[in-house]
Nucleic acid binder design. Structure first.
Lengths: 236, 236
DNA sequence: CGCAAACTTGATGTTGCTCAAGCTAGGTGG
DNA sequence: CCACCTAGCTTGAGCAACATCAAGTTTGCG
Protein backbone atom coordinates (compact mmCIF):
# COMPACT_ATOMS: atom_id res chain seq x y z
CA UNK A 1 0.00 0.00 0.00
CA UNK A 2 1.25 3.39 -0.99
CA UNK A 3 -1.12 5.16 1.40
CA UNK A 4 0.50 7.22 4.06
CA UNK A 5 -0.75 9.41 6.84
CA UNK A 6 0.13 13.07 6.56
CA UNK A 7 -0.18 15.64 9.27
CA UNK A 8 -0.27 19.13 7.89
CA UNK A 9 -2.38 21.61 9.74
CA UNK A 10 -2.27 24.12 6.89
CA UNK A 11 -3.48 21.60 4.34
CA UNK A 12 -6.24 20.53 6.66
CA UNK A 13 -7.43 24.06 7.10
CA UNK A 14 -7.89 24.27 3.34
CA UNK A 15 -10.32 21.45 2.91
CA UNK A 16 -11.66 20.34 6.25
CA UNK A 17 -15.38 20.67 6.44
CA UNK A 18 -15.71 21.15 2.72
CA UNK A 19 -18.84 19.09 2.86
CA UNK A 20 -20.22 21.90 4.93
CA UNK A 21 -19.22 24.56 2.47
CA UNK A 22 -22.20 24.09 0.17
CA UNK A 23 -24.15 26.58 2.20
CA UNK A 24 -22.11 29.75 2.10
CA UNK A 25 -22.07 32.32 4.83
CA UNK A 26 -21.30 29.86 7.60
CA UNK A 27 -18.04 29.37 9.36
CA UNK A 28 -16.29 26.25 8.12
CA UNK A 29 -16.75 23.87 11.00
CA UNK A 30 -13.87 22.10 12.63
CA UNK A 31 -15.95 19.18 13.80
CA UNK A 32 -14.46 17.31 10.89
CA UNK A 33 -10.82 18.16 11.41
CA UNK A 34 -11.08 16.49 14.79
CA UNK A 35 -11.75 13.07 13.30
CA UNK A 36 -9.77 13.21 10.05
CA UNK A 37 -6.50 11.85 8.73
CA UNK A 38 -4.80 12.39 5.37
CA UNK A 39 -4.06 9.68 2.80
CA UNK A 40 -2.41 9.54 -0.60
CA UNK A 41 -2.92 7.18 -3.50
CA UNK A 42 -0.75 6.78 -6.60
CA UNK A 43 -2.39 6.59 -10.06
CA UNK A 44 -4.08 3.24 -10.54
CA UNK A 45 -4.25 2.39 -6.86
CA UNK A 46 -7.50 1.23 -5.32
CA UNK A 47 -9.01 3.14 -2.42
CA UNK A 48 -11.66 0.52 -1.78
CA UNK A 49 -13.43 -2.15 -3.81
CA UNK A 50 -17.09 -2.86 -4.49
CA UNK A 51 -18.35 -5.05 -1.68
CA UNK A 52 -15.75 -3.90 0.84
CA UNK A 53 -17.04 -2.97 4.24
CA UNK A 54 -17.64 0.77 4.61
CA UNK A 55 -15.66 1.80 7.62
CA UNK A 56 -14.56 5.17 6.29
CA UNK A 57 -15.91 8.22 4.58
CA UNK A 58 -13.48 10.05 2.29
CA UNK A 59 -13.21 13.54 0.97
CA UNK A 60 -10.96 14.31 -1.98
CA UNK A 61 -8.43 17.03 -1.29
CA UNK A 62 -6.70 16.95 -4.67
CA UNK A 63 -6.48 14.71 -7.71
CA UNK A 64 -9.10 12.56 -9.42
CA UNK A 65 -10.78 9.25 -8.66
CA UNK A 66 -12.86 6.99 -10.88
CA UNK A 67 -15.82 4.99 -9.56
CA UNK A 68 -16.12 1.59 -11.16
CA UNK A 69 -18.74 -1.11 -11.36
CA UNK A 70 -17.93 -4.44 -13.00
CA UNK A 71 -20.01 -7.19 -14.56
CA UNK A 72 -18.93 -10.78 -13.82
CA UNK A 73 -17.27 -11.16 -17.23
CA UNK A 74 -15.22 -8.00 -16.84
CA UNK A 75 -17.32 -5.44 -18.65
CA UNK A 76 -16.76 -2.18 -16.84
CA UNK A 77 -18.92 0.86 -16.22
CA UNK A 78 -17.44 4.00 -14.71
CA UNK A 79 -20.18 5.81 -12.81
CA UNK A 80 -18.22 8.95 -12.12
CA UNK A 81 -14.97 10.88 -12.05
CA UNK A 82 -14.54 12.67 -8.72
CA UNK A 83 -12.33 15.67 -8.04
CA UNK A 84 -11.39 17.88 -5.09
CA UNK A 85 -14.17 18.51 -2.64
CA UNK A 86 -16.24 15.43 -3.45
CA UNK A 87 -17.28 13.00 -0.73
CA UNK A 88 -17.44 9.24 -1.13
CA UNK A 89 -18.11 6.22 1.00
CA UNK A 90 -21.47 7.40 2.28
CA UNK A 91 -22.88 4.09 1.03
CA UNK A 92 -26.07 3.09 2.80
CA UNK A 93 -25.50 -0.23 4.50
CA UNK A 94 -22.28 -1.98 5.20
CA UNK A 95 -20.78 -2.47 1.77
CA UNK A 96 -19.38 -0.12 -0.86
CA UNK A 97 -21.38 -0.21 -4.07
CA UNK A 98 -18.47 0.60 -6.36
CA UNK A 99 -14.70 0.39 -6.57
CA UNK A 100 -12.79 3.65 -6.19
CA UNK A 101 -9.45 3.98 -7.99
CA UNK A 102 -7.02 6.86 -8.35
CA UNK A 103 -6.82 8.33 -11.84
CA UNK A 104 -4.09 10.81 -10.91
CA UNK A 105 -2.13 11.07 -7.71
CA UNK A 106 -4.83 11.70 -5.12
CA UNK A 107 -4.84 13.20 -1.65
CA UNK A 108 -7.75 12.24 0.53
CA UNK A 109 -9.09 13.04 3.91
CA UNK A 110 -10.37 9.99 5.73
CA UNK A 111 -13.08 10.10 8.40
CA UNK A 112 -13.86 7.14 10.61
CA UNK A 113 -17.35 5.95 9.84
CA UNK A 114 -18.53 5.79 13.42
CA UNK A 115 -17.30 9.28 14.16
CA UNK A 116 -18.86 10.54 10.94
CA UNK A 117 -22.18 8.97 11.84
CA UNK A 118 -21.99 10.64 15.21
CA UNK A 119 -21.56 14.00 13.53
CA UNK A 120 -24.66 13.34 11.45
CA UNK A 121 -26.60 12.73 14.62
CA UNK A 122 -25.14 15.50 16.70
CA UNK A 123 -24.18 18.44 14.53
CA UNK A 124 -27.27 20.43 13.62
CA UNK A 125 -27.73 20.82 9.88
CA UNK A 126 -25.01 18.34 8.99
CA UNK A 127 -27.35 15.62 7.78
CA UNK A 128 -29.26 18.21 5.78
CA UNK A 129 -26.07 19.38 4.13
CA UNK A 130 -25.23 15.81 3.20
CA UNK A 131 -28.74 15.40 1.86
CA UNK A 132 -28.11 18.32 -0.48
CA UNK A 133 -24.83 16.81 -1.64
CA UNK A 134 -26.50 13.44 -2.28
CA UNK A 135 -29.36 15.08 -4.16
CA UNK A 136 -26.86 16.73 -6.48
CA UNK A 137 -25.26 13.37 -7.11
CA UNK A 138 -28.65 11.93 -7.88
CA UNK A 139 -29.30 14.65 -10.41
CA UNK A 140 -25.95 13.94 -12.09
CA UNK A 141 -26.78 10.23 -12.13
CA UNK A 142 -30.06 10.91 -13.88
CA UNK A 143 -28.42 13.05 -16.52
CA UNK A 144 -25.95 10.24 -17.05
CA UNK A 145 -28.82 7.80 -17.56
CA UNK A 146 -30.14 9.99 -20.38
CA UNK A 147 -26.67 10.10 -21.88
CA UNK A 148 -26.18 6.34 -21.67
CA UNK A 149 -29.66 5.38 -22.77
CA UNK A 150 -30.45 7.87 -25.48
CA UNK A 151 -27.49 9.86 -26.76
CA UNK A 152 -25.37 9.04 -29.82
CA UNK A 153 -21.61 8.57 -29.62
CA UNK A 154 -20.95 12.15 -30.74
CA UNK A 155 -23.44 13.56 -28.26
CA UNK A 156 -21.92 11.47 -25.49
CA UNK A 157 -18.39 12.68 -26.15
CA UNK A 158 -19.50 16.32 -26.47
CA UNK A 159 -21.40 16.05 -23.17
CA UNK A 160 -18.40 14.48 -21.51
CA UNK A 161 -16.01 17.21 -22.60
CA UNK A 162 -18.32 19.95 -21.33
CA UNK A 163 -18.85 18.11 -18.05
CA UNK A 164 -15.13 17.76 -17.43
CA UNK A 165 -14.49 21.35 -18.51
CA UNK A 166 -17.09 22.51 -16.00
CA UNK A 167 -15.51 20.49 -13.18
CA UNK A 168 -12.18 22.16 -13.80
CA UNK A 169 -11.56 25.74 -12.92
CA UNK A 170 -10.28 28.02 -15.60
CA UNK A 171 -11.88 29.71 -18.57
CA UNK A 172 -13.87 26.58 -19.35
CA UNK A 173 -12.00 26.19 -22.62
CA UNK A 174 -8.87 24.31 -21.62
CA UNK A 175 -9.71 20.74 -20.65
CA UNK A 176 -7.35 18.38 -18.94
CA UNK A 177 -8.04 14.70 -19.60
CA UNK A 178 -6.08 12.78 -16.96
CA UNK A 179 -8.07 9.61 -17.62
CA UNK A 180 -7.37 7.20 -20.47
CA UNK A 181 -9.54 6.65 -23.54
CA UNK A 182 -10.51 3.39 -21.95
CA UNK A 183 -11.84 5.24 -18.91
CA UNK A 184 -13.77 7.65 -21.09
CA UNK A 185 -15.21 4.76 -23.08
CA UNK A 186 -16.32 2.95 -19.95
CA UNK A 187 -17.89 6.13 -18.63
CA UNK A 188 -19.85 6.74 -21.84
CA UNK A 189 -20.81 3.17 -22.68
CA UNK A 190 -18.62 3.13 -25.81
CA UNK A 191 -15.37 1.50 -26.95
CA UNK A 192 -12.00 3.23 -26.97
CA UNK A 193 -11.97 3.16 -30.76
CA UNK A 194 -15.29 4.98 -30.98
CA UNK A 195 -14.11 7.58 -28.46
CA UNK A 196 -10.93 8.11 -30.43
CA UNK A 197 -12.72 8.37 -33.77
CA UNK A 198 -15.28 10.77 -32.33
CA UNK A 199 -12.60 13.05 -30.91
CA UNK A 200 -10.86 12.99 -34.29
CA UNK A 201 -14.10 13.98 -35.97
CA UNK A 202 -14.69 16.84 -33.52
CA UNK A 203 -11.13 17.98 -34.19
CA UNK A 204 -11.61 17.84 -37.95
CA UNK A 205 -14.85 19.78 -37.62
CA UNK A 206 -12.97 22.48 -35.73
CA UNK A 207 -14.93 22.15 -32.48
CA UNK A 208 -11.87 21.18 -30.45
CA UNK A 209 -8.08 21.18 -30.56
CA UNK A 210 -6.10 18.19 -29.34
CA UNK A 211 -2.42 19.12 -29.06
CA UNK A 212 -1.71 15.97 -27.02
CA UNK A 213 -4.10 13.13 -26.20
CA UNK A 214 -4.52 14.42 -22.64
CA UNK A 215 -4.79 18.11 -23.29
CA UNK A 216 -7.74 19.52 -25.13
CA UNK A 217 -9.08 22.94 -25.99
CA UNK A 218 -12.64 23.78 -26.81
CA UNK A 219 -12.75 25.95 -29.93
CA UNK A 220 -16.48 26.18 -30.62
CA UNK A 221 -18.28 25.89 -27.32
CA UNK A 222 -21.71 26.82 -28.72
CA UNK A 223 -21.74 24.04 -31.26
CA UNK A 224 -20.34 21.58 -28.73
CA UNK A 225 -23.18 22.50 -26.38
CA UNK A 226 -25.78 22.05 -29.09
CA UNK A 227 -24.33 18.64 -29.83
CA UNK A 228 -24.27 17.68 -26.16
CA UNK A 229 -27.87 18.78 -25.65
CA UNK A 230 -28.90 16.41 -28.41
CA UNK A 231 -30.66 18.85 -30.69
CA UNK A 232 -30.28 16.26 -33.44
CA UNK A 233 -29.88 18.63 -36.41
CA UNK A 234 -26.41 19.78 -35.37
CA UNK A 235 -25.49 16.12 -35.87
CA UNK A 236 -25.65 16.16 -39.67
CA UNK B 1 -56.91 18.45 -13.89
CA UNK B 2 -58.17 15.25 -12.40
CA UNK B 3 -56.46 15.88 -9.07
CA UNK B 4 -58.70 16.07 -6.07
CA UNK B 5 -58.16 16.43 -2.38
CA UNK B 6 -59.24 13.49 -0.30
CA UNK B 7 -59.69 13.45 3.44
CA UNK B 8 -59.64 9.98 4.85
CA UNK B 9 -58.11 9.57 8.26
CA UNK B 10 -57.93 5.79 7.94
CA UNK B 11 -56.05 5.93 4.67
CA UNK B 12 -53.68 8.50 6.11
CA UNK B 13 -52.87 6.30 9.07
CA UNK B 14 -51.76 3.59 6.63
CA UNK B 15 -49.06 5.53 4.88
CA UNK B 16 -48.25 8.69 6.73
CA UNK B 17 -44.68 8.80 7.83
CA UNK B 18 -43.68 5.96 5.57
CA UNK B 19 -40.50 7.81 4.82
CA UNK B 20 -39.68 7.25 8.45
CA UNK B 21 -40.35 3.54 8.30
CA UNK B 22 -36.92 2.61 6.96
CA UNK B 23 -35.58 2.38 10.46
CA UNK B 24 -37.76 -0.18 12.22
CA UNK B 25 -38.49 -0.17 15.89
CA UNK B 26 -39.60 3.44 16.02
CA UNK B 27 -43.08 4.73 16.34
CA UNK B 28 -44.38 6.02 13.01
CA UNK B 29 -44.36 9.73 13.53
CA UNK B 30 -47.37 11.87 12.94
CA UNK B 31 -45.36 14.96 12.19
CA UNK B 32 -46.11 14.23 8.58
CA UNK B 33 -49.84 13.67 8.83
CA UNK B 34 -50.12 17.19 10.14
CA UNK B 35 -48.92 18.75 6.89
CA UNK B 36 -50.26 16.30 4.32
CA UNK B 37 -53.11 16.16 1.83
CA UNK B 38 -54.16 13.37 -0.54
CA UNK B 39 -54.21 13.56 -4.34
CA UNK B 40 -55.18 11.25 -7.17
CA UNK B 41 -53.94 11.05 -10.74
CA UNK B 42 -55.44 9.09 -13.62
CA UNK B 43 -53.17 7.02 -15.90
CA UNK B 44 -51.17 9.27 -18.20
CA UNK B 45 -51.64 12.40 -16.11
CA UNK B 46 -48.67 14.55 -15.18
CA UNK B 47 -47.88 15.21 -11.54
CA UNK B 48 -45.21 17.78 -12.35
CA UNK B 49 -42.90 18.50 -15.26
CA UNK B 50 -39.14 18.83 -15.52
CA UNK B 51 -38.28 22.44 -14.76
CA UNK B 52 -41.38 23.10 -12.67
CA UNK B 53 -40.83 24.81 -9.38
CA UNK B 54 -40.60 22.36 -6.48
CA UNK B 55 -43.19 23.48 -4.00
CA UNK B 56 -44.27 20.03 -2.88
CA UNK B 57 -42.84 16.73 -1.79
CA UNK B 58 -44.92 13.66 -2.65
CA UNK B 59 -45.19 10.19 -1.28
CA UNK B 60 -46.87 7.46 -3.30
CA UNK B 61 -49.70 5.75 -1.45
CA UNK B 62 -50.74 3.41 -4.25
CA UNK B 63 -50.21 2.97 -7.97
CA UNK B 64 -47.16 3.59 -10.13
CA UNK B 65 -45.41 6.66 -11.52
CA UNK B 66 -42.78 6.98 -14.23
CA UNK B 67 -39.99 9.56 -14.07
CA UNK B 68 -39.12 11.00 -17.45
CA UNK B 69 -36.33 13.05 -18.91
CA UNK B 70 -36.55 14.32 -22.49
CA UNK B 71 -34.01 15.44 -25.07
CA UNK B 72 -34.94 18.47 -27.19
CA UNK B 73 -35.86 16.31 -30.19
CA UNK B 74 -38.19 14.12 -28.15
CA UNK B 75 -35.98 11.18 -27.30
CA UNK B 76 -37.13 9.97 -23.91
CA UNK B 77 -35.36 8.33 -21.00
CA UNK B 78 -37.34 6.94 -18.10
CA UNK B 79 -35.16 7.10 -15.00
CA UNK B 80 -37.44 5.12 -12.75
CA UNK B 81 -40.78 3.49 -12.01
CA UNK B 82 -41.98 4.40 -8.53
CA UNK B 83 -44.51 2.48 -6.43
CA UNK B 84 -46.15 2.77 -3.02
CA UNK B 85 -43.95 4.19 -0.31
CA UNK B 86 -41.52 6.04 -2.58
CA UNK B 87 -40.84 9.72 -2.09
CA UNK B 88 -40.33 12.24 -4.88
CA UNK B 89 -39.86 15.95 -5.27
CA UNK B 90 -36.89 16.20 -2.93
CA UNK B 91 -35.03 17.90 -5.79
CA UNK B 92 -32.17 20.07 -4.60
CA UNK B 93 -32.81 23.62 -5.72
CA UNK B 94 -35.95 25.13 -7.04
CA UNK B 95 -36.73 23.05 -10.09
CA UNK B 96 -37.79 19.44 -10.66
CA UNK B 97 -35.21 17.49 -12.63
CA UNK B 98 -37.67 15.13 -14.26
CA UNK B 99 -41.30 14.86 -15.27
CA UNK B 100 -43.49 12.58 -13.15
CA UNK B 101 -46.45 10.88 -14.85
CA UNK B 102 -48.97 8.34 -13.63
CA UNK B 103 -48.61 4.88 -15.17
CA UNK B 104 -51.64 3.49 -13.34
CA UNK B 105 -54.19 5.30 -11.27
CA UNK B 106 -52.11 6.80 -8.48
CA UNK B 107 -52.87 8.05 -4.99
CA UNK B 108 -50.35 10.44 -3.52
CA UNK B 109 -49.75 12.24 -0.31
CA UNK B 110 -48.61 15.81 -0.82
CA UNK B 111 -46.48 17.71 1.67
CA UNK B 112 -45.90 21.44 1.41
CA UNK B 113 -42.26 22.05 0.71
CA UNK B 114 -41.76 24.69 3.37
CA UNK B 115 -43.37 22.53 6.05
CA UNK B 116 -41.33 19.55 4.91
CA UNK B 117 -38.12 21.56 5.10
CA UNK B 118 -39.07 22.61 8.59
CA UNK B 119 -39.42 18.96 9.60
CA UNK B 120 -35.94 18.29 8.25
CA UNK B 121 -34.61 21.02 10.47
CA UNK B 122 -36.63 20.29 13.54
CA UNK B 123 -37.38 16.59 13.79
CA UNK B 124 -34.32 14.75 15.08
CA UNK B 125 -33.18 11.99 12.77
CA UNK B 126 -35.49 12.97 9.95
CA UNK B 127 -32.77 14.34 7.70
CA UNK B 128 -30.71 11.24 8.37
CA UNK B 129 -33.62 9.02 7.39
CA UNK B 130 -34.01 10.95 4.15
CA UNK B 131 -30.28 10.61 3.57
CA UNK B 132 -30.68 6.84 3.75
CA UNK B 133 -33.55 6.94 1.28
CA UNK B 134 -31.55 9.09 -1.13
CA UNK B 135 -28.51 6.84 -0.81
CA UNK B 136 -30.64 3.88 -1.82
CA UNK B 137 -31.84 5.79 -4.85
CA UNK B 138 -28.26 6.57 -5.74
CA UNK B 139 -27.35 2.91 -5.57
CA UNK B 140 -30.25 2.06 -7.88
CA UNK B 141 -29.15 4.81 -10.26
CA UNK B 142 -25.65 3.39 -10.43
CA UNK B 143 -26.92 -0.09 -11.16
CA UNK B 144 -29.02 1.43 -13.91
CA UNK B 145 -25.93 3.09 -15.39
CA UNK B 146 -24.25 -0.32 -15.64
CA UNK B 147 -27.37 -1.67 -17.30
CA UNK B 148 -27.63 1.19 -19.80
CA UNK B 149 -23.94 1.41 -20.58
CA UNK B 150 -22.80 -2.18 -20.65
CA UNK B 151 -25.61 -4.74 -20.78
CA UNK B 152 -27.04 -6.38 -23.91
CA UNK B 153 -30.71 -6.18 -24.80
CA UNK B 154 -31.42 -9.59 -23.31
CA UNK B 155 -29.58 -8.76 -20.11
CA UNK B 156 -31.44 -5.47 -19.85
CA UNK B 157 -34.85 -7.08 -20.18
CA UNK B 158 -33.97 -9.87 -17.73
CA UNK B 159 -32.73 -7.30 -15.19
CA UNK B 160 -35.88 -5.27 -15.66
CA UNK B 161 -38.22 -8.19 -15.04
CA UNK B 162 -36.41 -9.16 -11.85
CA UNK B 163 -36.38 -5.55 -10.66
CA UNK B 164 -40.12 -5.17 -11.17
CA UNK B 165 -40.81 -8.56 -9.62
CA UNK B 166 -38.85 -7.53 -6.56
CA UNK B 167 -40.77 -4.26 -6.22
CA UNK B 168 -44.04 -6.17 -6.18
CA UNK B 169 -45.10 -8.25 -3.25
CA UNK B 170 -46.01 -11.84 -3.88
CA UNK B 171 -43.98 -14.96 -4.52
CA UNK B 172 -41.66 -13.05 -6.81
CA UNK B 173 -42.82 -15.10 -9.77
CA UNK B 174 -45.94 -13.30 -10.94
CA UNK B 175 -45.02 -9.94 -12.48
CA UNK B 176 -47.50 -7.23 -13.31
CA UNK B 177 -46.42 -4.93 -16.15
CA UNK B 178 -48.70 -1.90 -15.96
CA UNK B 179 -46.37 0.13 -18.18
CA UNK B 180 -46.32 -0.09 -21.98
CA UNK B 181 -43.55 -1.59 -24.11
CA UNK B 182 -42.65 1.97 -24.99
CA UNK B 183 -42.11 2.76 -21.31
CA UNK B 184 -39.98 -0.33 -20.86
CA UNK B 185 -37.95 0.56 -23.95
CA UNK B 186 -37.33 4.09 -22.74
CA UNK B 187 -36.30 2.75 -19.36
CA UNK B 188 -33.80 0.29 -20.83
CA UNK B 189 -32.44 2.41 -23.65
CA UNK B 190 -33.98 0.18 -26.33
CA UNK B 191 -36.80 0.35 -28.88
CA UNK B 192 -40.24 -1.20 -28.39
CA UNK B 193 -39.47 -3.69 -31.15
CA UNK B 194 -36.35 -4.94 -29.40
CA UNK B 195 -38.19 -5.23 -26.08
CA UNK B 196 -40.95 -7.21 -27.77
CA UNK B 197 -38.55 -9.49 -29.62
CA UNK B 198 -36.53 -10.10 -26.47
CA UNK B 199 -39.61 -11.01 -24.44
CA UNK B 200 -40.64 -13.39 -27.21
CA UNK B 201 -37.22 -15.00 -27.11
CA UNK B 202 -37.34 -15.40 -23.31
CA UNK B 203 -40.77 -16.95 -23.71
CA UNK B 204 -39.56 -19.37 -26.39
CA UNK B 205 -36.61 -20.32 -24.21
CA UNK B 206 -39.02 -21.16 -21.41
CA UNK B 207 -37.73 -18.56 -18.94
CA UNK B 208 -41.03 -16.71 -18.74
CA UNK B 209 -44.72 -17.10 -19.57
CA UNK B 210 -46.65 -14.22 -21.10
CA UNK B 211 -50.38 -15.00 -21.01
CA UNK B 212 -51.22 -11.39 -21.83
CA UNK B 213 -48.83 -8.55 -22.69
CA UNK B 214 -49.23 -7.06 -19.20
CA UNK B 215 -49.13 -10.18 -17.11
CA UNK B 216 -45.99 -12.24 -16.89
CA UNK B 217 -44.77 -15.21 -14.93
CA UNK B 218 -41.18 -16.12 -14.25
CA UNK B 219 -40.64 -19.80 -14.98
CA UNK B 220 -36.87 -20.15 -14.59
CA UNK B 221 -35.71 -17.56 -12.09
CA UNK B 222 -32.18 -18.92 -11.80
CA UNK B 223 -31.44 -18.59 -15.47
CA UNK B 224 -33.12 -15.20 -15.60
CA UNK B 225 -30.86 -14.06 -12.78
CA UNK B 226 -27.75 -15.35 -14.50
CA UNK B 227 -28.79 -13.47 -17.61
CA UNK B 228 -29.48 -10.30 -15.67
CA UNK B 229 -26.14 -10.48 -13.87
CA UNK B 230 -24.42 -10.52 -17.25
CA UNK B 231 -22.45 -13.73 -16.89
CA UNK B 232 -22.07 -13.72 -20.66
CA UNK B 233 -22.08 -17.49 -21.23
CA UNK B 234 -25.74 -17.89 -20.39
CA UNK B 235 -26.27 -15.64 -23.40
CA UNK B 236 -25.38 -18.26 -26.00
C1' DC C 1 17.39 6.18 -27.42
C1' DG C 2 14.45 2.45 -26.71
C1' DC C 3 10.45 0.48 -24.97
C1' DA C 4 5.79 -0.19 -23.52
C1' DA C 5 1.48 1.68 -22.98
C1' DA C 6 -1.76 4.36 -24.99
C1' DC C 7 -3.78 6.18 -28.93
C1' DT C 8 -5.29 6.32 -33.83
C1' DT C 9 -6.83 4.48 -38.06
C1' DG C 10 -8.68 0.98 -41.22
C1' DA C 11 -11.51 -3.11 -42.65
C1' DT C 12 -15.11 -6.00 -41.43
C1' DG C 13 -18.90 -7.74 -38.42
C1' DT C 14 -23.04 -7.72 -35.50
C1' DT C 15 -26.40 -5.90 -32.51
C1' DG C 16 -30.13 -3.40 -32.22
C1' DC C 17 -32.65 0.33 -35.01
C1' DT C 18 -35.81 1.68 -38.74
C1' DC C 19 -39.43 1.01 -41.65
C1' DA C 20 -43.40 -1.64 -42.68
C1' DA C 21 -47.03 -4.86 -42.15
C1' DG C 22 -50.05 -7.70 -39.47
C1' DC C 23 -52.05 -9.16 -35.10
C1' DT C 24 -54.41 -8.99 -30.39
C1' DA C 25 -56.88 -7.40 -26.65
C1' DG C 26 -59.91 -4.80 -24.51
C1' DG C 27 -63.23 -1.19 -24.67
C1' DT C 28 -67.52 0.78 -27.02
C1' DG C 29 -71.70 1.06 -29.02
C1' DG C 30 -75.28 -1.03 -31.66
C1' DC D 1 -73.88 -10.18 -26.74
C1' DC D 2 -71.20 -9.47 -30.45
C1' DA D 3 -68.82 -6.86 -33.98
C1' DC D 4 -66.02 -3.23 -34.57
C1' DC D 5 -62.36 -0.15 -33.62
C1' DT D 6 -58.14 1.38 -31.94
C1' DA D 7 -54.06 1.44 -29.19
C1' DG D 8 -50.63 -1.39 -28.31
C1' DC D 9 -48.03 -5.37 -29.39
C1' DT D 10 -45.59 -8.64 -32.48
C1' DT D 11 -43.06 -10.01 -36.47
C1' DG D 12 -40.26 -9.42 -40.65
C1' DA D 13 -36.74 -7.38 -43.86
C1' DG D 14 -33.14 -4.31 -44.52
C1' DC D 15 -29.89 -0.97 -42.61
C1' DA D 16 -26.78 1.90 -39.77
C1' DA D 17 -24.19 2.85 -35.82
C1' DC D 18 -21.10 1.18 -33.20
C1' DA D 19 -18.22 -2.99 -31.96
C1' DT D 20 -14.55 -6.04 -33.11
C1' DC D 21 -10.34 -7.33 -35.02
C1' DA D 22 -5.98 -5.83 -36.69
C1' DA D 23 -2.25 -2.93 -37.84
C1' DG D 24 0.32 1.17 -37.33
C1' DT D 25 1.67 5.44 -34.75
C1' DT D 26 2.58 8.49 -31.04
C1' DT D 27 4.01 9.63 -26.38
C1' DG D 28 6.20 9.78 -22.36
C1' DC D 29 9.28 7.61 -19.29
C1' DG D 30 13.50 5.17 -17.85
Amino acid sequence: MYAQAVSNAAAKADFAGFALSYSPGRQPSNYLTAISSLQRKAPGETLFAEGDETNSVYEIVSGMLRLIKLLPDGRRQITGFLSAGRLLGLAPEGAHIYTAEAVTEVTLCRYGRAAFERLIDEVPGFAKRLLTVTSHELRAAQNQMVLLGRKTATEKVASFLLLIAEQQDGDGMKVDLPMTRSDIADYLGLTIETVSRTLTKLKQDGLIVLPTPNRLKIRDRDQLEELAAGDSDTNI
